[in-house]
């Protein structure tokens, strides 16, 4: 039963990274789009994520609920020592969600739109940045529950090169996912080309940030290289991700777009797999070599059992409905634009 719960936890983090990530990425793209193209980008973006954006962000809630019900010690330790980045991330979530809704549902279109757009684009950048910082901090070994000063306990637990580079890496992954996703959402050739350029830009950014993550890990004595390349799973995953990336770009230059999304999704899945596999079941690595483990710090058996049943029951209800939702809005009916408002 414990492994069912852990699988759900991992799957919700993955789905949040993929779906929520593409969603954040759409806002990041807006931030990196020239003024004259912004309006068109926004339109494509809205018709692409409008109906499903709320659902994309539910995965975070599922993950957090699994954590606080099943692994309360992990949840409370992270809540205490990563209080500040969590708060910043929450502010980003509030700002982004409301700005996205307001800009669409404001009955009067005027200068206020400018404000909503700015808030949306900036928070689309900061939220995944801090999500990455939080994830990076969890495994960085900088969290020190015994710290005696405010700075050691609450600031340097997350403010260091490794976490910050993981944050930037997360942002570029989001941008990459969104660009690849949006290529398939438009029928206009030059639009498509523009998103392909964006994908290229974020792909390069991800490679650069990825290199920086390794550099920071080396500098701060985090055995990241060993986690990723020290085992067969990691090596195979990285190799297949690289191959699929080459395949993806080849397809894109040939103008074939059907496989792009699954390939991009596969690459990100492989990245998450390699970075979590090696130190599993330890999810938080503390200063001085201590750790918080999904197997040792799980709740009592009955709790885990009830949680597993709740998750299984939930998926029976959620997944078919979610697939039908995504499927239904893949095909655009005639006169769709007029109905959006």
């Amino acid at each position: 039963m414990l492994y069912i719960v852990i699988t759900y936890l991992w799957a919700s983090i993955l789905l949040y990274l993929l779906l929520g990530g593409a969603d954040f990425g759409a806002g990041i793209i807006e931030l990196f789009t020239s003024q004259k193209n912004k309006q068109v980008t926004r339109k494509t973006l809205y018709s692409a994520i409008g109906p499903i954006w709320e659902a994309n962000h539910m995965w975070l809630i599922i993950a957090i609920v699994i954590l606080f019900v099943g692994f309360p010690v992990i949840y409370s330790t992270m809540s205490v020592n990563l209080h500040i980045p969590l708060t910043v991330m929450l502010i980003g979530i509030i700002a982004r969600g409301t700005a996205f809704t307001f800009r669409h549902y404001d009955a009067v279109v005027d200068d206020m739109q400018h404000l909503y757009n700015t808030i949306f684009a900036i928070s689309s950048f900061t939220t995944p940045l801090f999500l990455g910082i939080i994830a990076g901090s969890a495994v960085s070994g900088h969290i020190d529950p015994q710290a005696s000063t405010f700075a050691d306990a609450y600031i340097f637990s997350w403010l260091h090169w490794f976490s910050v580079t993981v944050g930037l890496f997360t942002v570029s992954i989001c941008g990459f996912l969104a660009s690849v996703y949006l290529i398939g959402e438009t029928d206009v050739e030059h639009e498509r080309l523009r998103f392909a350029h964006k994908a290229q830009f974020f792909n390069i950014a991800a490679v650069v940030c990825g290199a920086l993550v390794f550099a920071a890990a080396w500098f701060e004595h985090i055995p990241l290289f060993d986690w990723v390349f020290g085992n067969w799973i990691g090596r195979i995953a990285i190799l297949s991700a690289t191959l699929s990336l080459i395949w993806m770009w080849t397809l894109l230059y040939q103008g074939k777009i059907n496989l792009l999304r699954p390939l991009a999704g596969f690459q990100v899945t492989m990245i998450l797999l390699t970075t979590t596999f090696r130190h599993f079941p330890n999810i938080v690595i503390l200063k001085g070599g201590g750790y918080l483990s999904l197997t040792e710090h799980a709740g009592q058996e009955k709790t885990i059992e009830a949680l597993a049943w709740a998750l299984l029951l939930g998926s029976i209800l959620i997944l078919p409905a979610l697939f039908y939702l995504i499927y239904s809005f893949q095909k655009k009916p005639v006169g769709y634009e007029s109905q959006v408002h």
Partner: peptide, 11 residues
Amino acid sequence: AGPIFGMPFSL
């Protein structure tokens, strides 16, 4: 409390 009253939250 998480493991005890978490059931309604997971549902």
